[in-house]
C-alpha cells in the first residue's frame, strides 16, 4: 500500500465567500479602512487649523460637501460595526473570575457599551453639540 496524499488547493482570496461567518470577519476587518480614512481626515483638519482661520473655514466648507457627507455616513456605519464587534469580543480576551464563577460575557460587554454611551454623551455635551 503506497501513500499518495492529495492536497486540496485553497482559493487565494475567494475563501471568505464559503460561509457568512467569513464575510462578517472580512466586513469587520474592512472597518479599518474607514476608520483610518477618517483619522486622516482629522489630520487634514489639524493641518487647516494650524494654517489660520481662512484655511480652517475651507476645511469646514469641504466637510459640508456631498462627498464628505456620504463618507461620514458610511464611516459612521463601519465604525459602529467595529465598536460592536470589539465590545462583543472583549470578554473572550479578558475573562474575569470572581470566586469560582466567571463574570458572564454579557456583563463585561454591557459595561463597555454603557461606558461607550456615557463617554459619547459627555463628548457631545463638552463639544457643545446640543
Amino acid at each position: 500500500m503506497s501513500r499518495n496524499p492529495y492536497v486540496r488547493e485553497i482559493p487565494k482570496f475567494r475563501w471568505f465567500f464559503r460561509h457568512p461567518r467569513y464575510l462578517r470577519y472580512m466586513a469587520r476587518e474592512f472597518t479599518c479602512i474607514f476608520i483610518g480614512a477618517y483619522t486622516l481626515l482629522l489630520v487634514a483638519g489639524l493641518s487647516s487649523l494650524s494654517q489660520g482661520p481662512a484655511a480652517y473655514q475651507g476645511f469646514l466648507d469641504w466637510l459640508a460637501s456631498p462627498a464628505s457627507i456620504v463618507f461620514h455616513v458610511l464611516a459612521f456605519g463601519f465604525s459602529l460595526y467595529h465598536s460592536v464587534t470589539w465590545f462583543n469580543l472583549t470578554p473572550k480576551a479578558l475573562p474575569v473570575q470572581r470566586g469560582e464563577e466567571f463574570v458572564p460575557d454579557s456583563v463585561i460587554s454591557g459595561a463597555h457599551y454603557a461606558g461607550w454611551g456615557l463617554l459619547s454623551l459627555v463628548v457631545l455635551v463638552l463639544a457643545g453639540a446640543f
Binding site: H72, S83, A129
Partner: peptide, 26 residues
C-alpha cells in the same frame, strides 16, 4: 477607536450638516 471614533464622526457630521458644535468655532 471603538470608544471614541463613532462620536467624533458624529461631531464632524453635525458640522457638515450645518449644526456645527460650539467647539468648532475657530
Amino acid at each position: 477607536t471603538a470608544f471614541l471614533t463613532p462620536v467624533l464622526i458624529l461631531l464632524t457630521l453635525l458640522a457638515a450638516l450645518g449644526h456645527a458644535p460650539d467647539l468648532f468655532a475657530y
